[in-house]
Design a protein around this nucleic acid. Sequence first.
DNA 1: TCAAAAGTGTTTGTACTACACCCATGC
DNA 2: GCATGGGTGTAGTACAAACACTTTTGA
Lengths: 231, 231
Amino acid sequence: MKPFHSYRNPALAIDLVVFGYNAKELSVLLLKRNEEPFKGGWTLPGAFIQMDERFSDTCSRILRTKLGMDKLYLEQLYSFDDPARDPRGRAISVAYYALVNPHKLETAASTMAGDVEWVDCRKMPQLGFDHKQIFKTALQRLRSKILYFPVGFELLDEQFTMTELHELYECILDTSLDRRNFRRKILDSEYILPTGMKREGLQNRAPELYVFNKKLKRNNFQLNIPLSKGQ
Amino acid sequence: MKPFHSYRNPALAIDLVVFGYNAKELSVLLLKRNEEPFKGGWTLPGAFIQMDERFSDTCSRILRTKLGMDKLYLEQLYSFDDPARDPRGRAISVAYYALVNPHKLETAASTMAGDVEWVDCRKMPQLGFDHKQIFKTALQRLRSKILYFPVGFELLDEQFTMTELHELYECILDTSLDRRNFRRKILDSEYILPTGMKREGLQNRAPELYVFNKKLKRNNFQLNIPLSKGQ
DNA sequence: TCAAAAGTGTTTGTACTACACCCATGC
DNA sequence: GCATGGGTGTAGTACAAACACTTTTGA
C-alpha cells in the first residue's frame, strides 16, 4: 500500500489568533507579510504542519518564532476549508487561539520577531486570506468562553486586584458590568482567593490582591451578563 | 512555485457521527469494516477529502454512500491529530456530526448500505482508530448545544407533541426533566408554535401538535437543567 | 480636606422549582 | 368508570439587578 502522503492531499496549515491583554486593551498578534501573497498586508501568524508534528507542536513553533515564547494557553478553534482561501492552492487551515498575560507580554517585547505587532481588537485592519473570519470566530469564542470558564487565569498576572479582573471582563465583553454585582458573583464562585496582601502606592485606598483558585471545580462557574450598563 | 500538494502533507479525512433519534432512543450510525485495519470491527463512517471538495462535500458523499441521503443538519466538531490514530500512516481527521429525524430514518432503512447499522448511544462497542473519542466529543457537544440552541428542529418530525419533545430532551441529556416546567419553559421561549391540530387515535386525551418556529431568534433560548429528577 | 477608587449591604423583582389537581380519550 | 397520559395553576424560594453609603489612601 502506498503511504498516504503520496496521494494528493490539500496542504495543511495552522493559523494562530494570539490574544494579549494589557492596560485595558485586548490585542492580537499580527504579521506584516514581506512576501506574496498579500505582500505588505497583515495576516495572522501561521505555518504549514510538518509530517511529524502534532497541531500543538506547530503552534509552539509559530509562537517561538514570532513571539519568542511558547507554552501558552492554547485551544483549537475551528478548521477552515474554503478552496479559495489561499491563492497559491488548496490549503486547509486549523485555527487555534492563544492567550498571553501582560507580564509575559512585556518580556515578549524584546523577543518578538521584527515582522509582528500587537493590534487592538477594536481596530483590526483588513487581513489576508480568510484571516478576518478566523479572527472574528476567535473573538466570539473567547467572549462566550469567559462566561462559563475561568479564562482570566491565562490573561492576568499571578496576583491582581478585583478591579483588574473586572476591567478584563468589561474589555473582552465590550460592555460594562456592575462593579458590586460582579464582585459578589466572582467571590461566591470561589474562582479567586484573597491573599491578605494589598497593592500599595496607588493614589487611593490600597486594594486587596487575589490569586486564582487552582483547585476550582470549573463546572460551577457561570457568569450572567446583565443587560444594563452598570452604574 | 511548486503546487502545495506536491509537498508531503498528512492525509486528510472526514469522520462523521450521525445521530438518529427514534422511539426514545438516540443512536449513532456505525460501520462494520470489511477491510484492514480494524477488519471486522466497528468504526464511524468516514472518507478522505478529495482535492476539489469542501468539508461539506465530503460529508455529503459519505452520507449518500452509507445512508442513501444527504442534506442533513451538519456541524463541524473538532479536528483530531494524534499521529498514531491511523496505523496506515499520518492522517488528520476533521470530525463532523449530523442529525437525522425519525421520519427520514425510516426511509433510510431501505437505502442504507449493507455495512452500516444504528447503534444505541448507551451501548457503544469498542471502535477502531480514535473513533470512541470522537463519538464522546460529539455526544458532549450535542448535550451542551441542546441547552441553548433549538436542536430539536433536526431530530423530530415536522409536527410533534409536547411529550415527544420532552422525551427527546430527556433522552439526549440522559436525565429526567419536570414535565410541567419543561412545557412552560419551551412555550415561553417561542421555540415552538401550536398548530391547533391534535394527534388522534391514542389511548388517551389527544395531544396538541406543534411545529418549530422558523422565525425564532435563536439567542433568547436558554434551557436550564434542574438538579431534581422530576416527579 | 479633597479626589479617587475600594469595600459593604439592602431592596426589589423575576424566574426557576416543586408541587397537585382536573381533563379528555379509548377500552 | 377506569386507566393513561394531556393540560393548567400556584406557593415558595433563590438569585440577579439596581442602587447608596462608608472607608482608605495619596496628594
